[in-house]
Design a protein around this nucleic acid. Structure first.
Lengths: 146, 146
DNA sequence: TTACCTGTAATCAGGATAATTACATCAAGA
DNA sequence: TCTTGATGTAATTATCCTGATTACAGGTAA
């Protein structure tokens, strides 16, 4: 099991739009940087648009950020691209045997614990913004030029 | 995307073995409580055995815990049943374009952040033991009898 | 020997992913 | 207005994982 790369691609897209501000961020241009098909980019871009992170219009080439860099967290992206259903990171078997003490209690016992773990993950993602990513990339570029 | 229910079933199995201590925990018995096929149980049991959490022997009915209840954490179970590959909860697209400043840095920038989030999840699981689960089940049973 | 268990390979349907083709729709310039 | 080139989306495909199931090899004890 692995969380879809849509998430990482979403981060890539937003970072690229931010860094290439002024340039024309068409789906083909972005696909070239991500190294995938433009349709894949447009699909993910649609999700980012629905989440209010990005402005795109049919027929007009290019995309812009709809929010300030520092106002977009990785959690925003994660939720936007629907890589994990709400409260469903962990799958729990259903229909355990109600005639068994373990069977009839396991769900109520385990589900809150797993939700808690999922929450810990998501809280962590909330503390990083696209601005942080951009700064890190700029930093790495600077270092490599030295 | 969803993390395989093997994890929840693994917890179920260990809890059942603990509570039914003294009884014969055959794969068929456990399957009856989980409500699945005995082969599914045996496969997961094999993983729990490889991880040193459980003792089972070919030909002999029943399984026992190989460790103390309080010494088995949810993280132990999670790792035992291989629901998430080491350091691969998040999938990152490969071969981004090295000719692009974002493309050539995105992996080195994003991977550590995602690993960090995965670690937050796993740390959380480490703080809960099978003993906690058993106590919670016992508690819920007691309440429901009142 | 018989009966019953564990271990495991093989198969199957169902669902998700990522890539791709095809096409409808829209906007702007010649 | 017509052409060009972009976005939006449906449909298809190969690949992979899951969970259930059948089948059978091998172990253990009465």
């Amino acid at each position: 099991m692995s969380i879809s790369s849509r998430f990482a691609v979403g981060i890539h897209i937003l970072s690229l739009i931010a860094i290439n501000k002024g340039g024309v961020n068409s789906s083909e241009f972005i696909a070239g940087s991500v190294n995938t098909n433009p349709v894949v980019i447009r699909k993910i871009m649609g999700m980012l648009k629905n989440a209010g992170l990005v402005k795109v219009r049919p027929g007009i080439a290019g995309a812009e950020l709809a929010k300030d860099l520092s106002g977009i967290t990785l959690l925003d992206v994660y939720k936007a691209v629907h890589v994990v259903q709400e409260q469903e990171l962990f799958n729990v078997h259903d229909n355990p045997n109600p005639a068994c003490p373990v069977g009839r209690n396991i769900q109520n016992t385990v589900v809150p614990l797993l939700l808690n773990a999922q929450l810990a993950l998501e809280k962590n993602l909330e503390h990083v913004t696209i601005e942080d990513i951009i700064k890190d990339i700029a930093n790495k570029e600077k270092i490599s030029k030295e």
